[in-house]
Design a protein around this nucleic acid. Structure first.
Lengths: 191, 191
DNA sequence: GCATAAGCTGAATCGGAAGTTCCGGTTATT
DNA sequence: AATAACCGGAACTTCCGATTCAGCTTATGC
């Protein structure tokens, strides 16, 4: 395979991942092409069709997340592990995966990976609860849902202020760091 | 106006609000019609076009939210007021409003209402912080964003467990109720 | 009960957006 | 320099959903 073709392929994958991450599965081939800095035709040189392209990047991303999660499983404190996983998740369009899963994907790995990752994370959540860092009144599955919301919908990092707040909701009070912010600027935006 | 026409109009508005709430602005006229139990043609008897229909219901919903918010502003404890507002928000497709706002809406009230509601809520948030119920290290605008995420993206109520967790992230620790849940069922679902 | 204006339905129409193809031009590689 | 891979992007094809409209139904007033 020619060097430039290789470069393009990964540019396409990157672009697709980025766009799918922020706009969901509804990314047009043209948008991906533009973002990757190539022509549409090039997408079809590397992937048979749109769905294949999307599933391909979803599989790659999920594999990566699974590996990262496996590496974190068992490490203590579990809470810290969870934070690192959240960072990993940012790059992954879970929402994309979700919608791909709903219309029976071509790739059987997709649902398998999804299940595995979910249960790995739920396990870590349970550990964090056992260790007393995560509030115990939230079932692991629900905690995972909260994480999902925090990550997917806000597109945030573990060190982002907003995500931090959401994560703090999951935490037991004693471990919270003390408030630092003061003042009342910023009334606009949001809703 | 004939009685059945009136009935249909409100059925349409309800249906549109419901669907827009769960699927965002991308609701087809046909879906709305089906949900309302009428033919597509009927939509066009009541509204000139799709955009007008959407803006109409958005304005109605925002007006309602504004009134509810005004009524809550100033009431203490502000934290409780916030919870009641969250409940009101559930019915409102804020995401819809958002996207309508991005392509210069026909109705000038839309952006006006949005600004007013946002600043009202930010004010209540500031009150709650002053009263010591809401953590002070989160700027009001950001707190509003968190509320938005909790409400819009989860479609949850203030008494829903998940929303509760997110809201707790905004709260100062001392006011938290003690954990109650125990066990570790539920490992699947989510991600 | 009837006349009739107001309403309603849903198939047909129309337009546009997005996926896919393909051919002339470009470029890495030997 | 020769050539097999590649690339770009205009053109074509599909498909989906907004909108229209001709024919039928039903409140409403008498």
């Amino acid at each position: 395979m020619r060097a430039d073709a290789l470069r393009n392929r990964s540019a396409i994958a990157d672009a697709a991942l980025r766009l799918a991450g922020e706009r969901g599965e509804a990314v047009s081939m043209e948008d991906i092409a533009r973002e990757a800095g190539v022509g549409v035709g090039t997408l079809y040189r590397h992937f048979p069709d749109r769905r294949a392209l999307l599933e391909d990047i979803a599989v790659d991303a999920l594999r990566e997340l699974r590996d990262a999660t496996r590496a974190e499983a068992g490490r203590a404190p579990a809470w810290e592990a969870l934070l690192r996983i959240v960072d990993h998740c940012v790059a992954l369009p879970l929402s994309l995966t979700k919608s791909l899963l709903t219309d029976e994907p071509e790739r059987a790995e997709l649902p398998e990976l999804e299940v595995e990752v979910t249960s790995l994370i739920a396990g870590i959540v349970a550990d964090a609860q056992r260790e007393g860092d995560l509030r115990a009144d939230v079932p692991p599955a629900e905690a995972v849902r909260v994480l999902n919301v925090a990550v997917c919908r806000c597109g945030a990092r573990a060190d982002d202020h907003l995500t931090r707040v959401v994560l703090d909701g999951l935490r037991v009070p004693k471990n919270r760091r003390p408030p630092v912010w003061r003042g009342d600027e910023g009334r606009g935006e949001g809703s």
